[in-house]
């Protein structure tokens, strides 16, 4: 009987494999376009891309009054007009997604000369790691799994990915805020983000008339939650960027980690030097970890002045024209070593 059952299973396996061929040639392209259009973009551009720029909203967001609304990647391309910098962009992405995008690149075909990957400091915080946008990002990654397309499609229906509910994610985030210790090399009154945040919420700012300045308090709390953390070895983003580093080393593709600018000035004036200390300490950690071999970290942390940040009531890396141009200039300067003969001064 066992033999009979096994034979039937083999038949089922054969049917699935045959149907995979049918699926791949019929509905798969539409599914992929719908769920994971960045993957399609990578495939379609691989032959022509000299450099990939993997980014998120920081690349594409502009101020309405900007005279130039170009992306950071486009500004960078101005310095290397003979190279094609292909932008692959998706809102709220992070190392975990970029890592999957790399896997999509067909290593048997022409590889890009370099990959610029956005390194957003805030993507290492608990709020972003446990963001409710994660479900959607993970869903989009299902098709990059190393299974036949038809199986990946089935996994999509089964929701076989990191598919926590918003409530679960919020609980995880709050747990991290409550429990992950803040470490300073000097005495600091708050042990966790939660304590620091509560203190700020309970007595942060007063208006001249003596009432609470809630706008400022809320923003200061955002800054604490956004930057109040120490990057540690066990941070999931470290595993992601390690994998990215390893992939680039393995296939000898130069990697440029574009560490985004943060509103350090505002962090200082709103919360104080302790928060700025953490921002810089985390920056140093990342630079030290990844500035080696064929990888360069482009340190933009403090290059954009506060007035060039678009959102002043929220913590984002959305820059006005000058900010984006400054970062692009920084990137292009770093690329010079590799592409010196292609460099052309743009501004």
């Amino acid at each position: 009987m066992l033999k009979k059952v096994l034979i039937r299973f083999l038949w089922v396996g054969l049917i699935i494999l045959s149907l995979d061929v049918v699926y791949t040639h019929t509905l798969y392209p539409k599914d992929l376009e719908e769920k994971s259009k960045e993957v399609v973009e990578i495939w379609n551009s691989q032959d022509s891309a000299d450099i990939y720029y993997f980014g998120e909203s920081s690349n594409t967001t502009y101020r309405e009054t900007d005279s130039l609304k170009n992306r950071i990647s486009e500004f960078t391309n101005w310095f290397y007009p003979s190279l094609r910098i292909t932008n692959i962009n998706k809102f709220a992405t992070h190392g975990g997604v970029y890592r999957q995008w790399l896997k999509v690149i067909d290593t048997k075909k022409k590889l890009p000369h370099a990959i610029i990957i956005t390194l957003n400091l805030r993507s290492f915080n608990a709020g972003w790691i446990h963001s409710n946008l994660e479900t959607q990002l993970q869903e989009a990654m299902v098709f990059t799994q190393p299974f036949p397309n038809i199986v990946n499609r089935f996994f999509l229906s089964l929701q076989a990915f990191d598919n926590k509910t918003d409530k679960q994610r919020e609980e995880d985030m709050l747990r991290d805020y409550r429990t992950v210790p803040l470490v300073f090399p000097y005495p600091f009154p708050f042990k966790t983000v939660s304590e620091w945040d509560s203190h700020m919420a309970a007595g942060g700012y007063l208006k001249p008339d003596g009432s609470w300045d809630m706008d400022k308090i809320v923003l200061a709390c955002h800054f604490i939650k956004g930057y109040g953390f120490n990057i540690r070895q066990n941070n999931p983003r470290i595993a992601d960027f390690d994998a990215i580093y390893d992939w680039c080393s393995k296939f000898q593709v130069n990697l440029y980690l574009n560490l985004l600018a943060e509103n350090v000035q505002y962090a200082d004036s709103l919360v104080g030097k302790d928060l700025v200390f953490l921002m810089k300490q985390n920056r140093d950690f990342l630079v030290k970890r990844y500035q080696k071999g064929n990888c360069k970290v482009i340190d933009n942390l403090e290059v954009v002045p506060g007035r060039e940040f678009i959102d002043l009531e929220w913590t984002t890396e959305h820059y006005a024209c000058k900010g984006r141009m400054t970062i692009a200039k920084n990137i292009s300067d770093t690329l010079k070593k590799q592409f010196n003969n292609k460099y052309k001064k743009a501004y």
Binding site: I16, L19, Y23, K35, I150, F154, L156
Partner: peptide, 20 residues
């Protein structure tokens, strides 16, 4: 019978809803 299985498998694997 196996043709019906194939249709069911195709429907299940490929046409099933992507929202759970």
């Amino acid at each position: 019978r196996w043709a019906v299985y194939a249709v069911l498998i195709f429907g299940l694997f490929v046409l099933s809803g992507t929202q759970k």
